[in-house]
């Protein structure tokens, strides 16, 4: 359940807030998101990663399809990648890694601050 929330909310952040912030600020936001929602490690990792990675992949695909620009192929040629498909993949994978690690960091930090049960015996001994 937490995974879905993280995935959806990360996607929304990346898509709607990214135009105004640079990528590392987005990473901080994804970290805060996990910190607040307290997902498990895996939910944080995959939720944040897929949120940012799929967003980046989708955004680059959408821009490319809607403009019809030959730029991806030209950039791939310039970077000697052979095909523009690799550019889309690299963009998606980079987004995934940045999102996943940021989100996981937030979750782990929260985990760290989880109040420790300091009295396992319940009750007080006077």
């Amino acid at each position: 359940m937490k995974f879905i929330s993280i995935l959806v909310l990360s996607t929304l952040i990346v898509v709607f807030v990214s135009p105004f912030l640079t990528y590392w600020m987005i990473m901080v936001l994804l970290g805060i998101l996990s910190f607040v929602l307290k997902p498990g490690k895996w939910a944080a990792f995959w939720g944040g990663g897929l949120g940012m990675g799929l967003s980046w992949l989708g955004q680059s695909y959408y821009l490319s399809a809607s403009t019809g620009s030959a730029l991806p192929a030209q950039m791939a040629d310039l970077m000697q990648l052979g095909s523009s498909i690799y550019l889309f993949i690299i963009t998606g994978v980079l987004g995934f890694l940045l999102g996943a690690l940021a989100s996981l960091s937030g979750a782990l930090l929260r985990n760290l601050l989880k109040r420790k049960p300091n009295n396992i015996y319940k009750g007080t001994i006077y």
């Binding site: 990214s18 135009p19 640079t22 990528y23 980046w56 955004q59 680059s60 821009l63 490319s64 403009t67 620009s69 730029l71 991806p72 950039m75 550019l87 690299i90 963009t91 980079l94």
Partner: peptide
């Protein structure tokens, strides 16, 4: 490579 800031944005006419 960031689709929001990087070269992808230069596809827009």
């Amino acid at each position: 490579l960031d689709p929001n800031q990087g070269f992808w944005q230069n596809m827009l006419s």
